[in-house]
Design a protein around this nucleic acid. Structure first.
Lengths: 167, 167
DNA sequence: TTTTTACGTCAGTCATGTTGACATATATGA
DNA sequence: TCATATATGTCAACATGACTGACGTAAAAA
């Protein structure tokens, strides 16, 4: 039985531990977004633009509705940001082949360059944290974060294939 | 030497792995904030109110400047949100004892109740993720997230004392 | 006594989200 | 073929939460 007085809890779910988890997420996310935000400001863009650029870069040819599902915002919100990015030639639209109602989105060369510049900072930050924490910690990080994500979106994260040593 | 062709990288820092980390953070944070956001809407509050309520609850008697450092926003931004919370009696202010210029912030009973209601959802979500991932994964999660946080703020997260089994 | 600090306020602006209504082109099913 | 559903876009109005800049006040510190 759980011993409240001594602070021992077999499920490791003590209040303090959970609050630290909450705060780690807050501080990590705060610092994780700060660097790209500064770069975006130079372009007159904001974090919303980064998200669009990121996911279009990640899924070339993505449809507007798929992007909306990822971002969980309204089409009107997306429209403003996406419109700017298309107008300023960071993203191109082309009609779908099977379904010509769709506007498939892709980064232009310019868009790829900005995406690279933005994501580079975040990649470097993650890389450093991964390196310092070690491979085993990275597995735990992934496992817990995946548990925080809604069931429906977990399929976006296939479990890694093991490292092929020399193969 | 790193073998690019075979995808083997001894530092585990392959592009794909880093992008998955970036996306895990995005999706986890998105879903982590969605539930409290919905509750806050019932009160006519937003995420900014949650952050203030959370950190005042976490550090009773916190000063305005300390809160500003945590949130990394301007005093004008904080002012509006904090002003509402004080006016609607979720938070009280009292002058500092040693320094009477300070306004020490504390949650009222009403504030504590709202904080509990909001944080409960996040705590439950984290608790579930922790439970499903296991203690070892939790350690890794903490280690990596801490590495993402700016050096200056890492001291906010003391390393856990080991579980005392039986007192 | 002067300066600095902690905090507040007024005013204006911007980015990003919302709801609601309506429009258009295309796909799909009866 | 015709009706309906879907993918996308647009206009308008609004709320939240961030920003800068300027100025004010009380208390601490030099």
């Amino acid at each position: 039985m759980t011993d409240v007085k001594t602070g021992f809890n077999p499920l490791f779910l003590r209040e303090e531990e959970l609050r630290q988890g909450i705060e780690l997420l807050f501080f990590a996310y705060r610092d994780f977004t700060a660097e790209p935000d500064a770069i975006l400001a130079d372009y007159g863009f904001g974090r919303a633009h980064h998200r669009v650029i990121y996911f279009v870069g990640r899924h070339p040819g993505i449809t507007v509705s798929d992007l909306l599902e990822i971002l969980r915002i309204t089409k009107q919100s997306l429209s403003r940001v996406l419109g700017q990015l298309v107008m300023e030639k960071f993203i191109t639209q082309r009609p779908g082949l099977r379904d010509r109602r769709q506007r498939l989105l892709e980064l232009t060369e310019k868009g790829i360059e900005l995406e690279r510049q933005l994501t580079e900072r975040q990649r470097a930050r993650i890389a450093r944290a991964y390196r310092e924490a070690g491979a085993e910690a990275v597995d735990g990080f992934r496992k817990v974060l995946l548990g925080l994500v809604e069931e429906a979106d977990r399929a976006r994260f296939p479990s890694r294939s093991p490292h092929r040593r020399g193969g």
